[in-house]
Write a protein that binds this DNA or RNA. Structure first.
Lengths: 142, 142
DNA sequence: ATGCAAATGAGAACCATTTGCAACTAGCTA
DNA sequence: TAGCTAGTTGCAAATGGTTCTCATTTGCAT
């Protein structure tokens, strides 16, 4: 909780510095995002945010998410056949494993893969700007 | 050309075997797909297919692409902030590098990355079903 | 406190893709 | 070869996540 509070205050600071006003609605959305352990989509965030501030509209959720994304505070993911899902961008870079049965998302990171990607791009005459790596998996049964 | 003809006949055979009728419209779309060197989207395919058979509608393009995808003849890709793009699924598996300036798509393959992905999934207790790896790059200037 | 640019809620607009429906047709059958 | 019938088609309308419009509200620098 203390941690979360600090993080929220920190995120609000980033916004203010970026000239983005911290409104009641945005505070609610930020709190939800900071506390989220999963990767909720816009309507799920809306549902949760309304519990803090019933006036938050879905439009504002989308607008806030876009603003936060531009400030680099939030990351948007478009997994296969699904609505966009969001997470705070405070953790170091990672990729995602998606459970195709439950939709659960697990984060992982492989420096080897990261490096190989850069090498491949270089070989083809390109600079790697960003990438998307998603593993669609089924829980192993044994 | 001879090659393409054979390939088209082969694809048509696959469809018929799958109980999918090869109509005039589908033949046109198949030809376009088989000849495409790039990764066109539905409306571009529509544009090209109309030159062979002016009656092809966009609905039919979408319906045919879905049918072809289900037959495993075509693969659909949803790259970032863009409409779905398609390619025939006859080439061996590969991933994609997207030029973020031109939208051009380059195919590549890395066995090392493929292997690492499977290892990661396994470590997390999952079986890898499919994956998505896209490198968004800018042409190197030097 | 005040003023004003930024932000909000509600609903309309967007737009790629899908679907309902009545007319057509591929391709098996007799 | 004609007929049959379930699969297909074109058109237009529907869908659904996301964005935009606009009148109203509000954060916050002065």
């Amino acid at each position: 909780m203390r941690q979360a509070k600090n993080r929220i205050a920190e995120l609000e600071g980033i916004l203010r510095e970026g000239g983005v006003r911290v409104t009641r609605q945005r505070a609610a959305i930020l709190k939800i995002l900071a506390e989220a352990e999963d990767h909720p989509d816009a309507s799920e965030l809306h549902r949760r945010a309304k519990e803090i501030d019933a006036t938050v509209s879905l439009s504002t959720v989308y607008r806030t998410l876009s603003a936060l994304e531009q400030q680099g505070v939030v990351q948007r993911h478009a997994f296969e056949n699904a609505t966009a899902r969001f997470e705070t961008a405070d953790a170091p870079h990672h990729d995602h494993l998606i459970d195709i049965e439950t939709g659960a998302v697990i984060e992982f990171r492989s420096d080897k893969i990261e490096q190989l990607q850069a090498e491949i791009a270089a070989e083809l005459g390109y600079d790697l700007v960003r990438h998307r790596l998603e593993l669609y998996c089924r829980k192993r049964k044994d």
